[in-house]
Design a protein around this nucleic acid. Structure first.
Lengths: 329, 329
DNA sequence: GGCAGCATTGCAAACGTTTCTGACGTATGT
DNA sequence: ACATACGTCAGAAACGTTTGCAATGCTGCC
């Protein structure tokens, strides 16, 4: 069916090994034969069979990305950036969606791990020892998750949250609500950072939740915000923030007149909402580059100490934040 | 590194061929040896090397999906559904984003086509003859695009658009604007269907565009809608509709009080907007199943006539449509 | 009792590639 | 002039699977 290296060899009147060298290590073959070979390859439309190459080389030139839910608008830009980055280094990126379920994640890893040279796992739900033992068998980069001896890209919300606190403080807000949408996931850092930043700025913080990170969570939270007489809300992510906006409107509260709202992630939701949503941005290109480069590095050589790299965040002030309502209810 | 079939064979005290048969065609091997083999395989954690298997079998057990932009919230649910569907039939799904550029699409096809048994190409920008010749070399299913002799899933907006026209008519609307966001893409069917449906319902239709399918297009369109004294807008997709909503609010027009807005795609944007967006829904699970099943069918046997399957659409009435404003401006 | 047939297993080939080893010829250095 | 080195190429092995073919031993039938 497809054209093989053997047919190219025959067409060029040389051996298969010469064809292979002419294409892979051109300086090892005489200029004129090389010409003949590439001409023949071109003419026949030859391209090497990746399965055969993988079998021989022991590597697939592919990377795997495991994410909890591609439907979450936070991920597509990340995937796109990673794919771009991987492609430029000769790798194909394979995504898989674990559907927020631990069982699916395990199954997906099993299905995909043999087809790739390394794995980027975002916010894994697996127990730490599984991750450690997986990383012992193949290159693994964790994002937003930590495990002993496993490389990691840590996206830190610290800066963005500090800026959000500063921003709200400057607008005169004093009582804020944080809507925790972390569910029962292992990573508690978001909640901790927020507590720290708001304390540091002398803002009183009311945490509600944890709930699941869904639109309905925001809908649920909106009346609670009003009941707590808070003037600002920091939501677990943009989706939850959209729920808050939606329900505040239904309750007749104006944004940002009565309540200011801040999201996290700077997804497309934030930029298209009305008013547009103030949010904390994590640069997808940066996380993507860091994670991909780190993983590719790992496939070449395994350092003794698993590297950890940080990426930052920043506040994008938009239309849902403004001066606090005077206390005159 | 990884455990091979040979090691399993040694551990079980049989030949490699027996191991292979015990795992792939169990009825061909004696029950007790089979037990011994599976036990050994289990114990060593054996799983077959996909590269070797592909090489031998000539198939990869993978399918490719080519989409113009994963960042468009329309696609993630489709991808997810396709991945699910493919997985249940033993296939891995490989997505690639062609970034809306013809050159990238070609390059991506080249990169991915050898790694998969077939390709689903969504809204291809390639010239028809390229698609036809590609489909001659490997199984291809086109979505929202047509090419001679190539299988196709056609998602028809006809029903949804008819329902939208009916819906607007019932609410007393008479002058509607269609914001065309098709850019310079080949497929003109959307515009045609809309013209037909609105004519059929005796609604006057003003088409503006074509523009690119972006948020800003909606922002641009909003004042034009008012200038045309239309009371309803049908946008090219939800994203454009969000732009319209955003700018109508900025212009002081209320939705749906002054203007009704209808989107297309039923993305997450539609469900989280305020008010929530009336839109035309295409069921992702249905397109996904149809496309995947069709493609897998094609990998088994190539029918003489390339099959074409249709999937429908329907209106989801939500908060952005209502009774038309009385003509009393 | 002999022969056909079946169940069970091992051997070896094949898939397409890369790379090691070696062969051949020519140029170079002493 | 001879040995060494080098450039250039062909041959063959190897990667891990699956599967066609053959070998073995047993059963059952006439």
């Amino acid at each position: 069916m497809a054209v093989t290296i053997g047919e190219v060899a025959k067409a060029a009147g040389v051996s298969v090994s010469t064809v292979s060298r002419a294409l892979n290590t051109p300086d090892l073959v005489n200029a004129v034969t090389r010409q003949r070979v590439v001409a023949a390859a071109e003419k026949l439309g030859y391209s090497p069979n990746p399965a055969a190459r993988s079998l021989r080389e022991g590597r697939t030139e592919s990377l795997g990305l495991l994410i909890p839910d591609i439907t979450n608008p936070f991920f597509p830009p990340i995937f796109k950036a990673m794919q771009e980055r991987a492609k430029r280094q000769g790798y194909t990126l394979l995504v898989a969606d674990s559907d927020e379920r631990e069982a699916d994640e395990l199954e997906t890893i099993a299905a995909v791990s043999k087809k790739v040279d390394g794995l980027i796992i975002w916010a894994s739900m697996l127990p730490e020892e599984r991750l450690t033992e997986l990383a012992a068998r193949m290159p693994v980069v964790l994002v937003n998750r930590q495990a002993d001896g496993v490389s990691e890209v840590h996206v830190s919300l610290t800066d963005g949250i500090a800026q959000a606190a500063e921003h709200l403080k400057a607008y005169g807000h004093q009582r804020c609500v944080f809507v925790d949408g972390n569910g029962n996931r292992p990573d508690q850092s978001r909640s901790k950072s927020i507590r720290a930043a708001f304390d540091a700025h002398g803002l009183s913080l009311i945490e509600i939740g944890p709930y699941e990170p869904r639109f309905e969570t925001g809908v649920h939270a909106a009346p609670l915000v009003l009941a707590h007489e808070a003037t600002a809300v920091l939501a677990h992510n943009d989706l939850v923030a959209m729920g808050v906006l939606h329900q505040l409107a239904a309750l007749g509260a104006s944004v940002p007149g009565d309540v200011s709202v801040v999201g996290i992630d700077d997804t497309i939701l934030a930029s298209v909402s009305t008013p547009s949503l103030t949010t904390i941005r994590i640069d997808p290109d940066e996380v993507a580059s860091r994670a991909v480069d780190l993983l590719i590095g790992l496939t070449h050589e395994r350092p003794a100490e698993a590297p950890v790299v940080q990426v930052g965040s920043r506040l994008i002030p938009r239309g849902t934040t403004g001066p606090a309502r005077r206390e005159s209810r």
